[in-house]
Computed example of a mutant assay.
Amino acid sequence: MRHYISAEWKKLNKIQLLIIGVVFVALSSFIGLGTYFANQSVLIDGTQDKVMWGQLTFYYTQILYPPMLAIFIAISLIQEFERKNLEMLRSNAVSIKKLLISKLFTVTALVIPIQFLVLIVYIVALKVANVELSSFVLLTLKWTLLSILSSLSILCIQAFAYAKTRSFGQSIGISALGAMGGFVLLFLNVNLNKFYPYSQPMIALRSRALEDFSLLELTIFIFVNLLFSVIFYRLTCYELEKRG
């Protein structure tokens, strides 16, 4: 397994993906923080840190994050479909399951610094807004770590979308539709978002709740993300083996 991960890490265009991630964070920060500072004067004292976190992460998770993850995993997978590389790997007895795990692992490794960049932007914005740091920042650190798990479930879904369509544009479009679906559910019934895969980053970062998980909420969150990750990992393996 280590060999697979090492090989994928070398093949992956890490600088390209990190630049894409920084651009997405910058765009969402401009939208979210712009909204916060436009309404800062009417906020109640003691709520500014929570409101800022909500504005920053809500637009990030519900608008740009799923397409960003879709781009990441599509770029990782696209090289396997060029020049029938997947067929060559299979003929050399390369394990499709291990190959996919290594791709998910390496892409997730690149997601981690991007997620922490959001946290850094938040802390810097607090300083700029003269908002005193509180224990709430420690909660945002915990939620940032949990957002990695929510990223994995979307990566698995988008890996399947790309393997099924073999189209970069279509897979990104699916992620955009998935993100829009999260908005629709917010208007229909906010509780449905707890079970909707494209809303899991928002759930992880507590963008709407702005308070820590209860034990039941955390259990549901972990179960939903593991369930989607396992199901779509297996579906992607099947699709790659079938169409390879």
Rank of each mutant, 00 (worst) to 15 (best):
F81V: 12
K142F: 11
Q115E: 09
N130Q: 13
V107F: 00
A163I: 11
I148M: 08
L141T: 07
N130R: 09
I78L: 12
I157S: 02
I101Q: 03
S150A: 15
S147V: 09
V131I: 14
I148P: 04
E82W: 06
F116N: 09
L110D: 00
M88L: 15
L119M: 03
N130P: 06
I78M: 13
Y122E: 10
L145H: 00
M88C: 08
V131A: 04
L139M: 06
E87V: 15
T165C: 06
V118H: 01
A109T: 04
I101N: 03
I96H: 08
I114W: 00
F81Y: 09
V124C: 11
V111F: 04
V128H: 04
L110I: 07
L126I: 10
K103Q: 10
N92R: 10
L99M: 11
N130M: 10
E82L: 13
V121K: 11
T140A: 02
L104Q: 03
I123C: 10
T106Q: 00
I157E: 00
L145E: 03
F116S: 08
S147N: 12
V111L: 07
I154K: 00
I120F: 13
L149I: 14
R90L: 14
L117D: 06
S151R: 01
L86F: 10
A125C: 12
L146P: 00
T106C: 04
A159Q: 00
K98G: 14
L104T: 07
F160A: 12
V137M: 14
Q158E: 13
L100C: 07
W143E: 09
E82F: 08
T140E: 02
Q79V: 15
L138H: 01
S150L: 09
I112A: 13
I120D: 02
I154P: 01
F81W: 04
S150N: 07
F105T: 14
W143L: 08
E87T: 14
I120S: 11
T108C: 13
K84N: 15
L152T: 03
I123S: 08
L141E: 04
A93R: 14
N92V: 12
L155Q: 02
L119A: 02
L99D: 04
N130V: 10
N85A: 15
Q115H: 05
A109I: 09
N130W: 01
K103I: 11
S153H: 00
L89N: 01
F81R: 05
L146E: 02
Q79W: 01
Q115L: 12
S135E: 10
